[in-house]
Structures are given as structure tokens and as C-alpha cells.
């Protein structure tokens, strides 16, 4: 699966990316993480507040750092 962390590179966005990476590593899920900092791409997802997380093209959360449980649920629920 493909996870995108949307955010222009602020502290919260980095924290969100780190947390997602940590959960992916813990669960051993098969996922590529990509940080998206380009404003055009971010806006293209219809996201208005960052950080936001997109899993396989679907916006999962906006404007907050997701909880570990939430991330685990996305990882487990998809495939």
C-alpha cells in the first residue's frame, strides 16, 4: 500500500511522518511512505489543513497527527 504524508514541512508534519513510519515498521506492513510538500499536490487532494495522511489515494485524516491506533487500523484494514 501507498501512504502519503501531506504537509509543507512544518514540525507537525514531520512528527506525523515519523509516527506513521514507526507504526509501519512495528507492524511490518508492506507500505511505501512518501512525504508530499508540494502545495499543488496537497491542494489537489482537497486537503485544507495539514498534516494530512492519504492511504492508497484516500484522505484518512486532516489537520492533526494521527494516533498510533488509527494508523494501525488503516494498515490492517486495507488489505
Amino acid at each position: 500500500m501507498e501512504i502519503k504524508i501531506l504537509g509543507p514541512g512544518c514540525k507537525k508534519c514531520d512528527q506525523a511522518a515519523e509516527r506513521v513510519a514507526a507504526v509501519v515498521a512495528e507492524t511490518g506492513a508492506d507500505a511505501q511512505i512518501e512525504k508530499v510538500t508540494d502545495m499543488m499536490t496537497i491542494a489537489g487532494f482537497g486537503v485544507m489543513s495539514t498534516p494530512a495522511v492519504v492511504v492508497d489515494g484516500e484522505v484518512k485524516c486532516v489537520g492533526k497527527i494521527p494516533e498510533r491506533e488509527e494508523i494501525a487500523a488503516w494498515l490492517g484494514g486495507g488489505h
Partner: peptide, 15 residues
């Protein structure tokens, strides 16, 4: 409204 100036651009576009 919760607002952060680093997402001013996506917010502007969204609006």
C-alpha cells in the same frame, strides 16, 4: 476556525 498559516495555500485553494 483552527488555522495554521502554513496551510494558507491549500485553504485558499479549497475555499
Amino acid at each position: 476556525t483552527p488555522f495554521c498559516s502554513c496551510s494558507a495555500v491549500p485553504l485558499f485553494i479549497g475555499f
